[in-house]
C-alpha cells in the first residue's frame, strides 16, 4: 500500500495534477454549476468548455516555451509580440491593406501560411541570436518583445484591421456540426504531434542533453547550436499558430492587445508543470497541465465573481502555493518533518 502511494506521489506529473485538481475542487465547493454542461446551438456549453477553449493559445505557447527552456535554459519573452505580428501579417494579406473588409482579398490559406511563416521567421531570428551570436535568451528575445508590436503596428498602419468574413471566424469559434470549439482541437493536435516527434525520434533526448550540458553534448556529436536554433524556430511557429487563433477569435488584428502578457503566462505554465527553468529534463504534459491550470484559475475567479481589482492578488496567492508545493527545498523539509513526526509516534507507541 505504502509502496504504491510512494510510486504515485513520486510520479512526475503528480504535483501539477494535484494543483489542477485543487483549483477545480474550489469550484466544486464554491460554484457547483461550474461542471454543468449543456448543449446550446448544437455546441457544448459550460465553464469547463470555456477553460479548455480559452487555454488553447496558452497550451500551444507552453509547448514551444518548454522546448526553448529545456534546450537553452532561457525563456523566449517575445512570443506574445510574435502572435501580434502573425495576426497582423495574416489580416494585412487578407484585407489587402484596408481597415475593414467583408470579403477576402486573397485566399484564406495564403493568409494562414503567411502568418505561420512570419512566426517561424521571428522564431528563427531569436534562434540565430541565441545559438549563433550567443546572446542571452532573455536579451535576444527582448528585441522582438519590444519591436514586435511596433512591426505589427507598422503592418496594420496602427489601425485594428477587421476581416468580417464568416469563414475567418471558424479557427477561433465552432465549425458547424462539431460540438467543441476549434481551438481545442488545434491545441490537441499540436501537443500530440510534438510529443510523438519527441518520443519517436531522438530529438527529445538531444534537447535534454543540450540543456544539461551543451559542451558535453557537442563533444559526443550532437549539434548543440542547431538544436537550440530549432527549438526557438519551432517556438516561433507555435506562436504564429496561437496568433492565428487569437486573431480569428476577434476576426481582427489588434496589434496592441493580441497575446499581451501571454509570454509571462507561458513561462508560468512551464514552471507550474514542474519543469526547471534551468534547462535539461522537461515534460511537455506538465506544461500543458500548467497552462490549463492557469486558465482554470482565471475562469474560476470570473465564476466566483471576484472583483477585477482583486484578481491579481488571488492569482498570486495560488501561484505562490503551487510553486512552493513543488519546490525541492520545501519537500525536503516536509519529508524531514514527517520523519520526525513518525519517529515521535513510534516512541509514544513504545
Amino acid at each position: 500500500m505504502n509502496e504504491k502511494l510512494k510510486r504515485i506521489t513520486h510520479y512526475r506529473l503528480f504535483l501539477p495534477l494535484i494543483c489542477l485538481a485543487l483549483v477545480l475542487l474550489v469550484n466544486m465547493i464554491k460554484t457547483p454549476t461550474f461542471f454543468h454542461l449543456s448543449i446550446k446551438n448544437g455546441v457544448l456549453y459550460g465553464y469547463t468548455v470555456d477553460v479548455v477553449n480559452r487555454a488553447s493559445e496558452l497550451v500551444i505557447l507552453a509547448v514551444g516555451m518548454t522546448l526553448v527552456v529545456a534546450s537553452s535554459a532561457g525563456t523566449d519573452i517575445s512570443v506574445g509580440a510574435v502572435m501580434a505580428v502573425a495576426g497582423a501579417v495574416c489580416c494585412y494579406i487578407l484585407s489587402g491593406g484596408a481597415v475593414s473588409v467583408n470579403e477576402y482579398h486573397a485566399p484564406w490559406i495564403l493568409g494562414l501560411l503567411a502568418a505561420l511563416v512570419a512566426g517561424t521567421v521571428c522564431g528563427a531570428w531569436n534562434g540565430f541570436l541565441v545559438s549563433r551570436m550567443k546572446i542571452q535568451p532573455m536579451v535576444a528575445t527582448l528585441i522582438l518583445f519590444t519591436a514586435g508590436r511596433g512591426i505589427a503596428q507598422l503592418i496594420t498602419k496602427g489601425q485594428i484591421t477587421y476581416i468580417r468574413v464568416e469563414s475567418f471566424k471558424l479557427l477561433g469559434a465552432n465549425i458547424p456540426g462539431i460540438p467543441l470549439p476549434t481551438p481545442i482541437f488545434i491545441a490537441i493536435i499540436v501537443v500530440l504531434i510534438t510529443s510523438i516527434v519527441l518520443k519517436k525520434t531522438a530529438l527529445g533526448l538531444y534537447i535534454e542533453a543540450v540543456g544539461i550540458n551543451p559542451t558535453a553534448s557537442r563533444n559526443v556529436g550532437i549539434k548543440s547550436k542547431q538544436i537550440i536554433f530549432f527549438t526557438y524556430t519551432f517556438c516561433g511557429l507555435l506562436a504564429g499558430i496561437a496568433g492565428m487563433i487569437a486573431t480569428s477569435r476577434i476576426y481582427s488584428a489588434d496589434a496592441n492587445n493580441i497575446g499581451l502578457n501571454m509570454e509571462l503566462d507561458a513561462i508560468l505554465a512551464v514552471a507550474l508543470g514542474g519543469n526547471s527553468l534551468g534547462g535539461g529534463k522537461f515534460s511537455i504534459s506538465g506544461s500543458v497541465i500548467g497552462a490549463y491550470t492557469i486558465q482554470a484559475l482565471t475562469t474560476t475567479l470570473y465564476a466566483m465573481g471576484v472583483s477585477a481589482d482583486q484578481i491579481p492578488v488571488y492569482k498570486a496567492i495560488v501561484v505562490v502555493i503551487i510553486v512552493t508545493l513543488q519546490s525541492e527545498e520545501f519537500n525536503r523539509y516536509m519529508r524531514k518533518f514527517s520523519a520526525r513526526f513518525a519517529a515521535r509516534k513510534a516512541e509514544v507507541a513504545k
Binding site: 459550460g46 465553464y47 470555456d50 475562469t299 470570473y302 465564476a303
Partner: peptide, 10 residues
C-alpha cells in the same frame, strides 16, 4: 468576449 461568456453562465 471571455468575461461575457462567464457572465452568461453565472
Amino acid at each position: 468576449q471571455e468575461v461575457m461568456e462567464s457572465f452568461l453562465k453565472s
